[in-house]
């Protein structure tokens, strides 16, 4: 199969929609993610971020509309999409009954990493994520930060063109979070990888993402660089303000925005 032309986006959705009965968590979504971009998908709880990612990773068929991911159509060519992407679900998904090494070995085998390369590729991945000393321990003995790094290593082992991360830094301390950001930037440099990431952490969005889309009620409310979004709202506006403007009243109900804000304060204090 021939890949798309050099400048074509790595991800493009066309009126992507998902219904669950009367709920429409994703409504006629049109997103474009450029190659090598780190794209932030933000929005209050229930905005439809995870549902969007599940469709783009072929876990959930769209009710209507479609998307092209790394040159393949998610509805007609999900097999092609799966080879090109990596995915870290919102849940902690490493298998605790296996060691870090064994978790990675399973991924290597399912993604057809050639046998001769597996060992070196896995050792490299463990070292890259700072897990070389923990590789032969059961993953259930890992800290939350170590599990997340293991999952990133797993999702990137086959050198995906596009990586989907659903709240990858939730529950991580600021240092662990910064370590994850650094790894993502480094992988983009090395492998020309693009990233779609969801987060409730405005600092993360600001620091990491080239482009931010804030979803609300299944639609993209605003989109652009962090600076553009801030300037759009007015002088001195923060990304928090932009988020609050989009999410409207729902901020008062949802706990996670507050949580994100307090985490951010902690992060700022600890540097």
């Amino acid at each position: 199969m021939i890949g798309p032309a050099a400048e074509s986006p790595v991800l493009e959705t066309a009126a992507l929609t998902r219904r669950f009965g009367s709920i429409v968590p994703v409504h006629h979504l049109d997103l474009v993610v450029a190659q090598r971009a780190i794209f932030g998908l933000l929005g209050p709880n229930g905005a439809g971020k995870s549902t969007t990612i599940k469709m783009l990773t072929t876990l959930l068929p769209p009710s209507s509309g479609t998307a092209r991911v790394a040159g393949y159509d998610i509805v007609r060519e999900p097999w092609g999409v799966r080879r090109q992407i990596g995915y870290v679900p919102q849940l902690l998904s490493a298998d605790g009954a296996l060691t870090g090494y064994e978790n990675l070995l399973l991924s290597a085998r399912l993604y057809d990493v050639p046998r001769a390369d597996r060992r070196s590729r896995i050792d490299e991945a463990l070292a890259f994520m700072g897990l070389e000393d923990a590789g032969h321990r059961l993953a259930r003995t890992y800290s939350g930060g170590m599990v997340r790094r293991l999952e990133l290593a797993q999702a990137m082992l086959h050198r995906p063109v596009l990586l989907f991360l659903d709240e990858p830094t939730i529950g991580l301390d600021p240092i662990a979070r910064h370590a994850v950001w650094e790894r993502l930037r480094e992988s983009r440099r090395q492998f020309a990888m693009s990233v779609v990431i969801t987060t409730h952490d405005m600092e993360e969005a600001e620091a990491l993402c080239d482009t931010i889309a804030i979803m609300h009620g299944g639609r993209v409310a605003v989109q652009g660089t962090a600076a553009a979004l801030r300037n759009q709202l007015g002088p001195g506006a923060t990304l928090d303000d932009v988020f609050a403007d989009v999410a409207g009243g729902s901020i008062d109900e949802g706990g996670s925005y507050r949580d994100a804000r307090s985490t951010r304060r902690t992060a700022a204090r600890l540097g």
Binding site: M1, I2, G3, P4, A6, E77, R83, Q84, R159, V161
Partner: peptide
């Protein structure tokens, strides 16, 4: 550059 992972087999989109 085409966004195809290094080492991805040519039949990457094959259904079966």
């Amino acid at each position: 550059m085409t966004p195809v992972a290094p080492g991805a087999p040519p039949h990457a989109s094959a259904r079966t």
